[in-house]
Computed example of a mutant assay.
Amino acid sequence: MEALAPELGWPGYRVRPVQRWRGPTAENIDDCVAEEAPIVLMYNGEPHVVMLATPLDLEDFALGFSLTEGIISRCSEVESVRVYERAEGIEVRLKVPPARCEAIGDKGRNLTGRTGCGLCGARTLEQAIKKPPPVRSTVTVKADEMIRALRQLRDRQRLNSLTGAVHAAAWVVPGQGLLQLREDVGRHNALDKLIGALSRQRVDFPAGYVVVTSRASFEMVQKCAMVGVGLMAAISAPTGLAIKLAEEAGLTLVGFARDDSHVVYSHPQRLFHG
C-alpha cells in the first residue's frame, strides 16, 4: 500500500468561549468542543458513502470501514489511500482492485451516514443484516484483566478527557494489557479506526479482544466478527439483535462491564473468573 498522507489541518477539537453557570453564578471560560466533519469515502474515484466523523486517523477509518463492510478482505488489497481537505469536508480516496470496486455497487451505500449510524445507506435487509463468517478465536480472557483494561480505557481517552463527547474502542491482548486505542464522536467510527490501525500493523485479530465505551449494538458486534475478534466488552448494554448475532457468529459478548461487575451474554467459555 502506498504511503499514507499526513494528518490534515482539521483538529479533533476546538477551543470556544462559553458561558458556564453554576446555580445563580456565571463565568466566561474557554471550553474544548469535539469536532465532527463530513468524510466522503471514494473508491477508484467513485463516492461510496459520506460519514460524519472526528477528522483524525482517517486512513485508519477508511481501511477499517473497508474491511468491516466487506469491500476488501485484507489490508493489502488497498493500493493507496489519499486524504484531501475540501471547503465542505474531507475526501478519502482509496485505490482498490477493479473487481472489488465493481462489487461495491451491490453493497447498498451511496448515502449519508449520520454520526451514530452504522447501517445508513443499506437498501435491503440483506445488505443491512450481513452475516459475518464464524469466529474461530480461541482467546482466553481473565475477568480481572478485562476490568483493568476498561480502567485503562477510561484513563487513556485523551480527546474525551478534553471534550467529554467522544467514544473509544481499544485493543487488548491477554497478559499485555491495552495496546491500541482510537476515539471518535461515532462509536462505529471509533471501532473502524481501531480495526484499520490494527490491520495496518498486521495484528492477529483472534489473539486479542476489543473493549468499547458505548453500548453493544448489532453493528459493533458485526464489525468485530467480520475480522475474527473473539470477545467484545462494552461498558453499556447490548441490544437483542447484537446478542443474537454474537451467539450465531461465535463471539463472546460482555455488557455492563464497569468496575468489578459485568454481564456475559454469549459464549462465556472465553472469559475466566477467579
Rank of each mutant, 00 (worst) to 15 (best):
residue 115 T to F: 05
residue 100 R to Y: 04
residue 109 R to I: 10
residue 134 P to W: 03
residue 128 A to S: 08
residue 126 E to N: 09
residue 122 A to H: 13
residue 88 E to C: 00
residue 126 E to A: 15
residue 137 S to L: 05
residue 118 G to S: 04
residue 125 L to G: 04
residue 135 V to Q: 08
residue 102 E to P: 03
residue 120 C to D: 13
residue 104 I to A: 01
residue 121 G to M: 06
residue 123 R to M: 11
residue 128 A to D: 06
residue 110 N to W: 14
residue 137 S to D: 03
residue 115 T to N: 07
residue 105 G to W: 12
residue 126 E to M: 11
residue 97 P to R: 03
residue 121 G to H: 11
residue 124 T to R: 09
residue 109 R to N: 02
residue 88 E to L: 00
residue 128 A to F: 05
residue 115 T to I: 15
residue 123 R to F: 09
residue 97 P to N: 02
residue 92 V to S: 03
residue 95 K to G: 05
residue 137 S to F: 02
residue 119 L to I: 14
residue 86 R to E: 11
residue 102 E to G: 05
residue 94 L to D: 04
residue 105 G to K: 05
residue 101 C to V: 15
residue 111 L to P: 01
residue 139 V to I: 14
residue 129 I to T: 13
residue 137 S to Q: 05
residue 122 A to G: 10
residue 124 T to G: 08
residue 98 P to S: 10
residue 132 P to A: 02
residue 136 R to V: 14
residue 88 E to Y: 00
residue 88 E to S: 00
residue 124 T to M: 09
residue 87 A to F: 01
residue 100 R to Q: 08
residue 139 V to M: 02
residue 94 L to E: 06
residue 134 P to Q: 01
residue 135 V to G: 07
residue 133 P to A: 13
residue 92 V to H: 04
residue 86 R to C: 03
residue 97 P to V: 06
residue 128 A to Y: 03
residue 110 N to Q: 15
residue 128 A to H: 02
residue 122 A to C: 13
residue 130 K to W: 09
residue 103 A to H: 07
residue 105 G to P: 01
residue 111 L to M: 13
residue 100 R to H: 08
residue 128 A to G: 08
residue 84 Y to D: 09
residue 86 R to A: 06
residue 114 R to W: 12
residue 100 R to N: 12
residue 87 A to C: 01
residue 127 Q to D: 05
residue 139 V to D: 02
residue 91 E to Q: 09
residue 107 K to H: 07
residue 122 A to Y: 10
residue 110 N to S: 13
residue 85 E to W: 00
residue 84 Y to N: 11
residue 112 T to P: 02
residue 97 P to E: 01
residue 108 G to D: 03
